[in-house]
Design a binder for these strands. Structure first.
Length: 421
RNA sequence: GCCGUCGUAGCUUAACAGGCAGAGCACUCGGCUGUUAACCGAGCGGUUGGCGGUUCGAAUCCGCCCGACGGCGCCA
């Protein structure tokens, strides 16, 4: 509907977005996955009974319309379809969503709300992001590798797990692909996955889901510089692809396109220690050894016009599997990639390869190393240096689309208070 | 887990130092030959989240419970 079909007879199959009738004429805005166009019905040009039937249709009724495309400044968008024939596919019941809706009502009716232009735009971007991740890793020579969703293992020290009955026993929904990936690299080499991860944490924030999609990668012989480059490359590739495929959607979502278009390598890299001094200079009350909270992240990301890598965190605030930095073993060879409004996009690290120090770290963390027995075998039979990271896909979408809440980055969000529809 | 805000018609809400629960949208009926969230007229629609208490009288005050939303913490 941009003038390309003016004068042509076309058929459209879709749903009624809005209706108006003025006696002998009716105007139906018809939506399909590509957009909305006004369909104009005139009593004189069609069967009278059918006209009356069309006039009575409610919003979201499905129909097929045939007619001529006409340029008309009175039509929204400047073009309309002058209908000559219509087939009613299904006359809708009174649709629960109208104007003036609360967040709560839209979430209760999420299965209907995903028909909205806003949700459709976001989900189109989401589709591009998933495709771009596969493209990037395959282009870079990484193989796709799957881990089980049902697992007896915890993967991250403190994080809580969803228990699942497993016949007479119980297992958990996975929090991460990583531990299985660390076994996988011995056969397949460099690997990646896109898979759901589950966290049973009652996090009440705009950037947490209990079920989220996780892009993870594990690379043989990789060091910290390798996974920094790999993280930066992935993010830039996603941005490029979304700008190529979804500029129209991003404009409707009122995203700052100049910011996204201006992103290029290299992203700034600072150590945790430098970050702490910078924050202190900026008047933020942080002491060395504390993990960053929301105020710290907010300030830190505001100091850069690109995503920023923060490396070499103290070992106390990071997971047991991260390798110590050779020059200072109070720090780990890992990083977080942070962006404004969203916080952490990627968390990555070089993995500890020595079985004894790994067992020690687990015991220090109050865990029973015997549960990790099979995993520790990856450090017993030809242990090799390796590294990897995990990226929160909904967080990337939230960042790209400038969303206020991560729940809108996924069709059917799962949060501590909500698991329907 | 902690702190805060809010539950009134299908939806969005008004009424709150206690005194007849009212409107807009949606829907139904009627009118209108170019509407743009059309408009005009009429109608339908309420156990004020639940239980208990105070009071002559509670949507309004008090207690408990349930639910949702927002913020912090934890993380991707």
């Amino acid at each position: 509907m941009e003038g390309k079909h003016t004068g042509d007879e076309v058929k459209i199959r879709g749903w009624i977005h809005r209706t108006r009738d003025i006696g002998n004429m009716a105007f139906l805005n018809v939506r399909d996955p590509s957009g909305i166009v006004q369909a104009t019905f005139s009593k004189d040009d069609m069967d009278e009974d059918k006209f009356e039937e069309v006039k009575d249709l409610l919003v979201e009724s499905s129909l097929k319309v045939k007619g001529e495309v006409a340029e008309d400044e009175r039509a929204p968008g400047g073009y309309e379809l002058r209908v000559t024939d219509v087939e009613i596919v299904h006359a809708s019941e009174d649709f629960p969503i109208h104007k003036d809706q609360s967040v709560e009502h839209l979430l209760d009716n999420r299965h209907l709300w995903i028909r909205s232009t806003e949700m459709r735009d976001i989900l189109n971007v989401r589709s591009t992001v998933f495709g771009a991740i596969h493209e990037f890793f395959r282009k870079e020579g990484y193989k796709e590798f799957q881990s089980p969703i049902l697992t007896p293992l915890a993967c991250e020290g403190g994080a809580t797990l969803f228990p699942v009955e497993y016949f007479d026993d119980h297992v958990y929904l996975t929090q991460s692909w990583q531990l299985y990936a660390e076994a996988g690299i011995f056969g397949t080499g460099d690997i990646y996955t896109i898979a759901p991860s589950f966290r049973a944490e009652k996090s009440r924030t705009p950037r947490h889901l209990t079920e989220y999609w996780h892009a993870e990668v594990e690379g043989l012989w990789h060091d910290l510089d390798d996974i920094i480059e790999l993280g930066e490359g992935l993010v830039l590739h996603i941005v490029d692809r979304v700008l190529e495929e979804n500029e129209e959607e991003l404009e409707r979502l009122e995203v700052d396109l100049d910011y996204l278009k201006g992103l290029e390598a290299p992203f700034p890299i600072i150590t945790y220690e430098e970050a702490v001094s910078k924050l202190q200079e900026e008047g933020i009350d942080v002491t060395y050894g504390e993990d960053f909270g929301v105020p710290e992240e907010k300030k830190l990301t505001s100091l850069f016009d690109k995503p920023v890598f923060v490396t070499h965190y103290p070992k106390e605030i990071k997971a047991f599997y991260m390798k110590r930095a050779g020059e200072d073993d109070t720090k780990v060879l890992g990083y977080d990639l942070m962006v404004p409004h969203v916080g952490e996009l990627i968390g990555g690290s070089v993995r500890e390869t020595d079985v004894d120090s790994m067992i020690r770290r687990l015991e220090e963390g109050g865990e029973d190393p015997s549960i990790y027995d099979w995993f520790l075998d990856t450090r017993r039979y030809g242990s090799v240096p390796h590294a990897g990271y995990g990226l929160g896909i909904e967080r990337v979408i939230m960042w790209l689309c400038d969303l206020d809440h991560i729940r809108d980055a996924i069709p059917f969000p799962r949060t501590p208070n909500r698991y329907r529809p």
